[in-house]
């Protein structure tokens, strides 16, 4: 359907900038319009990819959680608190199977998986320094790699100011990784 959602957001932004804002005389109203512009830019930043990002995120989280369940199971057999975490992961992974691609379903699943991830990181933290920790440390690193990828997605108003050089560095490193992947 044309105009697409993204094209429509761009039309709203253009109307704001070219028609509405020049008519505003109050600095407060102009400031509010600026916030609306940035909110629209943020929506535009992930309009096309939001569902795909969530689907991939959920897939990655499921893999990380399943691996964590196995690693925790192996790390400290007989540890009751870890055993209950392992069981909970097992149950939740089974419960939250859902093939719907609506954003609300994907986000709801993401929420459930994220809550489990919080618990996993706590469990990994609690293992720090204990024997068996080495069995989960690699996974812990993988989780942070994933969390970093998620944290750099989309558009933030800081990307044009405070985080400008930081985000340029992040994105050029990601592009290099992609290029290396393509060569391989």
């Amino acid at each position: 359907m044309r105009p697409t959602g993204l094209e429509s957001i761009r039309a709203i932004q253009a109307a704001l900038a070219d028609i509405i804002v020049p008519e505003l005389t109050s600095a407060f109203a102009q400031d509010a319009a600026g916030a609306v512009q940035m909110l629209l830019e943020s929506l535009a930043g992930d309009w096309d990819t939001a569902a795909e990002d969530l689907r991939r995120d959920n897939e990655a989280l499921s893999v990380l959680l399943a691996s964590s369940r196995d690693a925790l199971d192996r790390a400290l057999p007989g540890n009751k608190s870890l055993a209950s975490t392992v069981t909970d992961i097992e149950n939740r992974l089974r419960e939250i199977q859902d093939d719907s691609l609506t954003l609300s379903s994907l986000a709801s699943r993401n929420h459930a998986l994220g809550a489990l991830l919080e618990r996993i990181l706590v469990a990994f933290d609690d293992l720090t320094g204990q024997s068996g920790y080495e069995k989960v440390d690699g996974l812990r690193r993988d989780i942070y790699v994933h969390l970093r990828q998620v944290a750099t997605r989309g558009w933030s108003f800081w990307d044009v100011s405070s985080f400008r050089e930081r985000m340029i560095a992040v994105r050029s490193a990601a592009a290099e990784d992609d290029a290396r992947g393509a060569v391989r």
Partner: peptide
């Protein structure tokens, strides 16, 4: 209904990157 309040929640990710 302040649009800024809607906007700010979408910017926590960059802080998470900095925290990590």
């Amino acid at each position: 209904r302040n649009p800024l309040m809607a906007l700010v929640g979408r910017n926590v990710a960059r802080l998470e990157l900095e925290i990590m």
